[in-house]
């Protein structure tokens, strides 16, 4: 017996490659956004700082890739699977819902990593992107952030009954998140009340944590971000374990 988890991730990955629009929104759209803003603001160091706009915002665009994959793609495709009866076919097989969700998610994670690598390459090639942190800490923080954002996606992905409702929920989460959490626009430009609101999103914490560690901060200095992300992970796992709907 091969692992169901690996088999599901493999076939989901293949399916992803056959889906041009998901491909565009995860791999190309964040890259274009970054290049657009970078062309306006360049990467010269900010006054009194060592880092410039691109150094500072690459981790934020990584967050944009994450939210596009884990909220948009994941939720809409799970909801469509549920509505079409594809999950019902899986249910007839001896496989736990967790293997399906996790397999699906890991395929999407692979695409996320590809999107992030594109951002890094573009930053290095065109804007002399620099990194001040500890690489292992950053990888850890990146994984934690992915898990935190994905866990938020777990909830609608486990519950949304139809493709339409999945898309609506995904949009309701996606657009406020990308504008308020610093993914598309720098967070410090927001008015205070929006900053406060943005703290409910896992993505805000993910992006701040990644930015701080990228610029050299030790990750243990940010327990609040870590705690919020862990909280989302627990909540997502709980909801999907308890309330996952096959049809």
């Amino acid at each position: 017996m091969k692992s169901p988890f690996i088999a599901v991730s493999k076939s989901e990955f293949i399916l992803y490659l056959r889906e041009p629009s998901a491909f565009f929104f995860t791999l190309i759209f964040p890259l274009l956004m970054m290049l657009l803003f970078a062309s306006m603001w360049g990467n010269d160091p900010f006054p009194d700082e060592e880092f410039g706009y691109v150094d500072f915002s690459v981790p934020a665009f990584m967050g944009l890739v994450m939210v596009t994959s884990f909220i948009m793609s994941f939720t809409t495709s799970m909801a469509a699977y549920r509505e079409k009866g594809i999950l019902k076919r899986f249910r007839a097989a001896p496989v736990a819902p967790f293997s399906i969700l996790a397999g699906h998610l890991s395929a999407i994670f692979a695409v996320t990593v590809a999107g992030v690598i594109l951002l890094l390459l573009a930053g290095i090639l065109f804007y002399d992107l620099k990194f001040w942190g500890n690489i292992f800490e950053f990888i850890f923080v990146f994984l934690l952030s992915s898990a935190g954002v994905a866990a938020m996606g777990f909830i609608p992905a486990s519950l949304a009954p139809t493709a339409r409702s999945g898309t609506v929920i995904a949009n309701i989460l996606y657009f406020p998140m990308i504008f308020l959490s610093g993914a598309a626009l720098p967070w410090f430009m927001l008015p205070d009340f929006l900053k406060d609101i943005s703290l409910i999103f896992p993505l805000t914490h993910a992006i701040k944590l990644m930015q701080e560690v990228w610029l050299g901060g030790p990750f243990l200095d940010y327990p609040v971000h870590i705690a919020v992300l862990l909280g989302y992970i627990l909540a997502g796992l709980f909801v999907s374990a308890k309330f996952f709907r096959w049809e």
């Binding site: 399916l15 079409k84 009866g85 007839a92 097989a93």
Partner: peptide, 30 residues
Amino acid sequence: KRRIGLQQQESEIPDRLRLREAMELFSSFY
């Protein structure tokens, strides 16, 4: 479910999955 097989009156697999891929995927569950 490890010991039975069910053909449902109505069911679906993803449109863009090839038959051999689908059969391999479902084989992996047993």
